[in-house]
Computed example of a mutant assay.
Amino acid sequence: MDTFWDFVKSPFAWGLAIGLAIWFFTWKASIAAKRNLKKENKRLQAEMRDLEMHLNTQLKINASGNNSIQEKVDNLKEQNETLRVNLAALQNKPGRSELRALHTMETAVRLMREQAPGFASAWEVALRQAENEYDEAAGGLRKLVRKVIALPGPGESNEKDDKHSDD
């Protein structure tokens, strides 16, 4: 037993004991850190699953919204094409060119009466001006204004004009 106590009192034994104590506490700390890292890893994986599920749902919502918008755009393109074809067909109907010429002549005659009655050159100027006016009115802002205000066309009269002519 004396040899045991001699060994315990030796500097080697003290160094071995201190080294083993340091190793034990380091080992214990590493096990605790490893356990904490596993818990943190599980928590982060759960959060990642939740985020993936949320992202998946968000992508599905965006995809369905994009699909519905694309369907609406395609539908509107088809309607636009149909309306364009119908407009072209209506403008090419028989009698349309005659109606245009009649409207142009009516406007030209009205302008000739106002500007210079009896002069052929003034008639030609008025005729060209009436054609330009009709072309502007056939497609553009004037057409919209005419529809909104609902002005009478050539040959028609306002109710106000009829009432004043009776007086």
Rank of each mutant, 00 (worst) to 15 (best):
K34L: 12
Q115I: 14
A126T: 00
L127F: 11
I61C: 03
K163M: 08
G153C: 09
G140L: 03
S68R: 08
K72T: 15
S68G: 07
N56G: 01
A63V: 11
K160Y: 10
Q129L: 07
K77H: 12
D50K: 06
A88K: 12
R35Q: 15
K77A: 15
W123R: 10
A120F: 15
W123T: 05
N56Q: 08
G65K: 05
L83H: 02
L59P: 05
A120W: 10
A130C: 00
G140T: 03
Q58H: 08
V73L: 13
D166N: 13
P94R: 02
R49F: 10
E106G: 14
R100P: 06
Q115T: 11
V73N: 14
L127V: 02
R110F: 02
I69S: 04
K34N: 12
G95T: 03
L90N: 07
G19F: 01
A89P: 07
L99K: 13
K39S: 15
M112V: 15
E159K: 07
I18Q: 02
A130Y: 00
W14E: 11
E156I: 11
L44I: 12
K93H: 09
D50W: 08
M1W: 12
L111P: 00
P117H: 06
E114F: 07
A88Y: 09
A32R: 10
G153H: 02
Q129I: 02
R128Y: 07
F7T: 07
R49A: 11
M53D: 14
I61E: 08
L141S: 01
L87C: 12
E47Q: 05
D135C: 06
E159H: 03
A29L: 07
A89R: 04
R43W: 14
T104Q: 11
F4T: 11
L111N: 06
P152M: 01
K77S: 14
E98W: 06
E81G: 01
L141W: 01
E40H: 00
A130E: 00
F24M: 04
A88N: 09
I22G: 11
A33C: 13
A29Y: 03
R110Y: 09
E106R: 10
K28W: 11
L151V: 00
K28G: 13
L55H: 09
F4V: 10
T57C: 13
D50V: 05
